[in-house]
Every structure is written in C-alpha cells, then in structure tokens.
C-alpha cells in the first residue's frame, strides 16, 4: 500500500477519534452547532473526501492493470 493511501486512511480516524480531547467544548458555535457536534459533522465530510480520493486512486490503478 502506498504512503498516500495510508495517510488518506489515517486522516479520518485522527480527525474523528484522535482529536476528541481537543474539541470537547460547547463554544464557539459553528453553523448553529455546538463545537463538538460541528467537529464530528465536519469529520463526515473529511471521511467522504478521503474515501473518494482512495477510490479515484484505486480506479486508476485498476484500469492500468487491465
């Protein structure tokens, strides 16, 4: 597995699990949400982008292999 893929896999885990001790706060509100809730919602987008990137990389590799 390439380094890029490992990093893309780790980012969502660090964002959503690893950062919890630093984002456990109510304020500031972002988009009307308490900060902790906002952080986890943002984590969904981060995960989406990372998996999307992994999928793009893998599709390209599969095509080359064909």
């Amino acid at each position: 597995m390439s380094l890029v893929k490992i990093i893309l896999t780790l980012i969502p885990f660090i964002w959503t699990i690893g950062m919890i001790p630093f984002v456990n706060r109510v304020k500031p509100f972002v988009l009307g949400l308490p900060f902790l809730a906002f952080w986890l919602v943002a984590g969904i987008i981060v995960a989406f982008l990372c998996i999307k990137a992994l999928y793009t990389i893998d599709s390209k590799n599969n095509k080359e292999a064909d």
């Binding site: 896999t9 969502p12 885990f13 959503t16 699990i17 456990n24 308490p34 902790l36 809730a37 986890l40 919602v41 984590g43 969904i44 995960a47 989406f48 990372c50 998996i51 992994l54 999928y55």
Partner: peptide, 18 residues
C-alpha cells in the same frame, strides 16, 4: 453531548468497509 458519538462511527466504519 455523548450522543454526538453517533455522528462519528458510521463514516469510519465505511472506510474500514472500503
């Protein structure tokens, strides 16, 4: 607050599922 964990696990589970 603890309820917000529900927002977190799904996306990570799909990454594992990938």
């Amino acid at each position: 607050g603890p309820t917000f964990y529900i927002l977190g696990y799904g996306a990570l589970a799909y990454l594992i599922g990938y």
